[in-house]
Amino acid sequence: MHIQLSHPSRTVDIKGPKRAKDVLRELNLVVEAHLVIRGDELVTEDEMLADQDHIEIRPVISGGT
């Protein structure tokens, strides 16, 4: 599956089917700091993601000042 990441903006490919939380783990990303979006729908970390899915993993933590 195609995965869009931010900070810096890039894409990676990961073999499906796989649960969202396992994809996050594989990328070394913490659940609490990210959202998984399939197409334009939010999914939980339990969701099974398939090879044809377009996935965005969006960071939600901001540094500010």
Binding site: E32, A33, H34, L35, I37, D40, L42, R58, V60
Partner: peptide, 8 residues
Amino acid sequence: RELAAYCV
């Protein structure tokens, strides 16, 4: 995370 989810 909840606020980002609310926006999405």
